[in-house]
């Protein structure tokens, strides 16, 4: 089972992201909610993760700081990070991709937008569901 950390200080935003991920075929995943970057980092250090979907603007630790810490960690730096933010624009997106974000999506995220950037994860999920090695 895949572990997906969803970090956002809004419970509404977390619910919306999880619903979208379920719609695109990740309903079998274990979703680990985090209210800020610090919580997300602690969850990932403790349990690992196959994907992080994070907001940018959060209290305690923001999404950009979280992204930097993940990419600087030998243990966590392979985890793909998708940033979902209301503060998206081309200049900001480029900055975040340089920091190591796999993709940057605008809020409110849609299943179609997530599917486009998480195609690789869906395919491995399908293989896992088929009983193949993951």
């Amino acid at each position: 089972m895949k572990k997906i950390v969803v970090a956002d200080d809004s419970t509404t935003a977390r619910m919306f992201v999880i619903r979208c991920l379920e719609i695109i075929g990740l309903s079998g995943a274990e979703f680990l909610p985090a209210a800020n970057g610090k919580e997300a980092l602690e969850l990932m250090k403790k349990d690992g993760a196959d994907l992080l979907v994070t907001d940018l603007n959060m209290p305690e630790m923001d999404g950009a700081t979280l992204l930097k810490k993940i990419k600087a960690s030998l243990k966590l730096n392979e985890i793909p990070v998708v940033v979902v933010t209301s503060g998206s624009n081309p200049a900001k997106n480029e900055e975040l991709k340089k920091l190591g974000a796999h993709a940057v999506l605008e809020k409110p995220v849609s299943p179609a937008a997530l599917l486009e950037v998480l195609d690789f994860l869906i395919h491995t999920e399908e293989k896992t569901n088929d009983g193949s090695a993951w």
Partner: peptide, 20 residues
């Protein structure tokens, strides 16, 4: 939060970031 982000994105040039 989402309205504010979309509003600022529409107002500003693509190379200008904003902070909420």
């Amino acid at each position: 939060n989402t309205i504010a982000g979309r509003f600022m994105k529409a107002l500003l040039p693509a190379d200008q970031t904003f902070q909420l």
